[in-house]
Amino acid sequence: MTVNPNFSWKKSNSTKYGLTVLKQEPLSEGFYSETELHTNPPFMIKYFGWSQSIYEWAVTEAGFKKFSWHPIEIPKQAIEQYTEDYWQDFLDNCLIIGLSCEN
């Protein structure tokens, strides 16, 4: 799991899913971001999200021969509880994504 290189806080935010991206500043190869998690007590994380090409360069440099990107899937129970419409913003602009690598 990593930060989705295609996430944009200008499209939609994730507040209703338990976190709010407060800042996203562009960098030459990605972005710097600050996000508040709505826990008790709330806390903030600061992180870098790299471009897809940087992630792919890094896994290749690490010696992996294959890699795949995997979008997040919403469990059936969560869709039944909250409806598909509720999850649409999350799916359209998800902050996280899976990246698998193998030799």
Rank of each mutant, 00 (worst) to 15 (best):
M44W: 08
T60K: 15
I54K: 15
Y17L: 00
A58I: 12
S51M: 05
M44F: 11
A58H: 12
V59Q: 01
Y47D: 01
G18T: 09
S51C: 05
T60L: 08
G63K: 07
P41T: 06
S53G: 08
E56S: 01
Q52C: 02
V59S: 03
F31S: 05
F43L: 07
H38F: 02
P42L: 03
I45P: 07
L19D: 07
E34V: 11
E56F: 02
L19N: 11
Y17M: 03
K46L: 08
I54S: 07
F43T: 04
T60R: 14
N40V: 15
F48Q: 10
F31Q: 09
F43I: 05
T20F: 00
F43A: 01
L19S: 11
L19I: 10
T15G: 00
L22N: 11
I54Y: 11
V21D: 02
V21P: 06
E36L: 15
P42D: 06
G63H: 13
F43Y: 14
S51E: 07
Y32I: 00
K16D: 08
N40Q: 15
E25S: 11
S28H: 05
P41A: 00
Y17W: 10
M44L: 12
E36I: 15
S51L: 04
T35C: 09
L19E: 11
W57F: 12
K46C: 13
T60Y: 05
W50F: 14
S28W: 00
G18H: 09
H38T: 01
L37F: 15
S53C: 10
E29Y: 12
T35V: 14
P26E: 05
P41K: 05
F48I: 13
G18E: 03
A62M: 14
T35F: 05
Q52M: 10
V21C: 09
G18F: 09
K46F: 13
E36V: 15
